[in-house]
């Protein structure tokens, strides 16, 4: 489906040989990725590998130290501020924490992009906001303040807000965490409907392997600064790599380390100098 020199127009986001570091730690060491247009693309990987960072690099909030990110054939890190903002209106992003504005009500939060970028009459704004809120099941919560929402609810409000400007692409950072089974089911359904009805491209970052594999058209698994595997959900499930198998099944033991890089456990515990 996507191959590194595939047809240009099929690819919405193209990442080539991207490097990025935080201080002395290299987070990415030459990532290549093609996000196909029009599908749901999942990015998975162990906690702390830099999935959120990757989304921020695609949204040009961070700059890679080397390599390029193209969004719809434009090098997103070379744009002027004005052009960048124009492109960002075509990207929605759902933050891990929701990132709602704390001094505005749920309704005003969802209406915010419209108020900033359009001059629609109030009746239309109300109509648009309420349909989005209804879709995420929170029409009744419109007058609450963000501080009065649970984490899962906040994320659903953020989803409603991200859909407000009819973007070309939406990036979801961990949309499933903090959702009970019912809202999880509804949410998965919703992502699916939204994606096909609005002809969107979705990028989903998630730990929830089964849920993610069930809705994604294409999956990348990232670890240790590189893409370790890319393919359709079936390719991933039947991958020959031990690493991928362990990640998909969630085994504690295997090639994936659970520990943050550290010195040897035994010698650390019984460090002689503290005796």
């Amino acid at each position: 489906m996507t191959n590194n020199n595939g047809a240009m127009s099929d690819v919405l986001v193209r990442i080539r040989d991207m490097h990025f570091s935080r201080g002395n730690r290299a987070i990415f060491r030459g990532i290549n990725m093609d996000i196909p247009r029009g599908g749901i693309c999942a990015i998975m990987g162990p906690s702390g590998t830099g999935k959120t960072t990757l989304l921020k690099l695609i949204g040009a909030q961070l700059k890679p130290s080397q390599g390029t990110v193209h969004f719809d054939e434009r090098d997103i890190h070379r744009l002027s501020r004005r052009d960048l903002y124009t492109e960002r209106k075509r990207m929605g992003m759902l933050f891990q924490s929701g990132a709602l504005l704390t001094d505005l009500s749920v309704f005003e939060n969802v209406a915010y992009p419209l108020r900033e970028h359009t001059a629609l009459p109030e009746r239309l704004v109300r109509h648009l906001v309420l349909t989005r809120l209804h879709a995420v099941g929170l029409r009744g919560a419109r007058d609450l303040m963000p501080g009065e929402l649970s984490g899962g609810m906040a994320r659903r409000v953020a989803l409603a807000r991200a859909l407000m400007l009819d973007p070309t692409m939406i990036m979801y950072d961990e949309p499933f965490t903090g959702q009970d089974p019912i809202s999880m089911g509804v949410l998965i359904e919703l992502l699916h409907t939204v994606n096909s009805a609005l002809d969107l491209t979705s990028i989903i970052v998630s730990h929830d392997v089964q849920e993610t594999l069930s809705i994604a058209d294409y999956v990348y698994i990232v670890s240790d600064g590189v893409v370790v595997e890319g393919g359709t959900p079936d390719d991933i499930r039947h991958s020959s790599s031990d690493w991928v198998q362990q990640f998909v099944r969630g085994d504690a033991d295997g090639p994936v380390p659970f520990q943050f890089p550290a010195t040897d456990y035994q010698s650390d515990l019984f460090a002689p100098e503290i005796v």
């Binding site: 990207m91 992003m93 924490s97 990132a99 900033e116």
Partner: peptide, 21 residues
């Protein structure tokens, strides 16, 4: 706090300039 709760990033991604707003 707006920075820590990603509200500033959120504004940026909505193409709203936090300097102006």
């Amino acid at each position: 706090l707006m920075k820590a709760t990603e509200q500033l990033s959120g504004l940026e991604m909505m193409a709203v300039d936090p300097y102006q707003r």
